[in-house]
Simulated scan of single mutants.
Amino acid sequence: MSQDRIAVIVGSLRRDSFNKKLALALEKLAPPDVSFAYLPIDDLPLYNQDDDATPAESVTRLKDGIRAAQGVLFVTPEYNRSIPGVLKNAIDHASRPYGQSAWLKKPAGIIGVSVSATGTAMAQQHLRNILANLNMPTLGQPEAFIQANEDLFDADGNIGPHSQSFLEGWMRNFIAWVRAFAVATGKAG
């Protein structure tokens, strides 16, 4: 059985990140023929166009991981009503040099969790604008603005019962989105 590979980029570097926990819990909701590759962004240098010709190994690893995937899952917190700088740095690295973007036509999903009542709504909107510019078809519906509360995860790190049905549906839609683009482009796992 072939595997569909999803590149996962978590926009938080925090050791006990809610978003990393959400990514790991969402992975458990995916079909067994889908694999997840977590792409680290904590060791990327600050983007500098002068380095485009000789990228750091961490940049090459990031771009290779994106290219090897059928889709990309962004799981991001919201910092000051936008995406974290570390996530924007990773996006910039993988989009350069001009004409060699690893993001091009990769289907994407965006989700995030925050203690805020609005979840990560603003960060997701800003990220959607960036991904549109990168020509990444991004799942529009259902949107998922998740608030961290004591019921979101169970004791084993799984999605809790109050959110499970919604997030299972979100994951089904995301995987179907990725697969539709893989079939359309002849890049099915």
Rank of each mutant, 00 (worst) to 15 (best):
97 P>Q: 10
67 R>K: 15
61 R>F: 07
13 L>R: 01
119 G>Y: 09
179 R>F: 03
119 G>H: 10
90 A>W: 02
78 E>Y: 06
119 G>E: 10
92 D>C: 07
12 S>F: 00
20 K>L: 15
135 N>A: 14
57 E>L: 10
176 A>Y: 08
123 A>K: 04
37 A>H: 09
54 T>K: 14
128 R>N: 07
19 N>V: 04
179 R>D: 02
37 A>V: 08
142 P>W: 12
24 L>M: 08
83 I>W: 03
168 E>Q: 15
138 T>L: 08
9 I>N: 00
50 D>V: 11
154 D>C: 12
154 D>V: 09
127 L>D: 06
30 A>C: 06
165 S>V: 11
29 L>H: 07
27 E>F: 01
106 K>Q: 00
153 F>N: 10
52 D>K: 08
151 D>R: 14
3 Q>C: 04
148 A>T: 06
171 M>G: 07
189 G>M: 02
38 Y>S: 01
145 F>M: 13
66 I>G: 04
57 E>H: 06
136 M>Y: 01
99 G>S: 12
77 P>Y: 04
147 Q>K: 15
152 L>P: 12
37 A>S: 14
41 I>V: 11
170 W>S: 08
33 D>Q: 11
162 H>N: 13
97 P>M: 12
39 L>K: 00
122 M>A: 11
43 D>Q: 14
92 D>E: 15
33 D>K: 05
36 F>H: 05
104 L>R: 15
32 P>H: 06
160 G>S: 12
177 W>M: 02
98 Y>N: 11
22 L>Q: 06
135 N>Q: 15
164 Q>C: 10
149 N>M: 11
123 A>G: 11
98 Y>T: 12
162 H>K: 14
74 F>I: 00
152 L>S: 11
82 S>I: 05
90 A>N: 03
114 S>N: 08
95 S>R: 07
67 R>Y: 03
28 K>M: 02
125 Q>R: 13
147 Q>T: 15
76 T>A: 05
172 R>T: 14
60 T>M: 08
133 N>K: 09
30 A>Y: 04
1 M>I: 06
88 K>V: 02
104 L>A: 11
188 A>Y: 05
106 K>T: 00
67 R>D: 08
100 Q>Y: 13
50 D>P: 08
169 G>F: 09
101 S>Y: 09
26 L>W: 07
68 A>K: 13
73 L>H: 02
169 G>R: 14
73 L>P: 01
55 P>Y: 05
39 L>G: 00
145 F>C: 10
24 L>K: 08
141 Q>A: 13
61 R>G: 02
63 K>H: 04
67 R>G: 01
8 V>E: 00
29 L>C: 07
105 K>I: 04
101 S>D: 08
148 A>K: 14
141 Q>K: 14
148 A>C: 07
37 A>P: 01
98 Y>V: 12
25 A>G: 05
168 E>Y: 07
25 A>D: 05
155 A>E: 15
158 N>W: 05
115 V>H: 09
10 V>S: 04
46 L>D: 08
27 E>K: 07
87 L>W: 04
179 R>G: 02
74 F>S: 00
102 A>Q: 02
128 R>G: 08
76 T>P: 02
174 F>Y: 15
97 P>F: 10
178 V>A: 01
146 I>G: 11
51 D>R: 12
123 A>M: 06
39 L>I: 03
81 R>D: 12
119 G>C: 10
12 S>E: 00
144 A>S: 15
39 L>V: 00
181 F>H: 13
59 V>F: 04
22 L>H: 09
9 I>W: 00
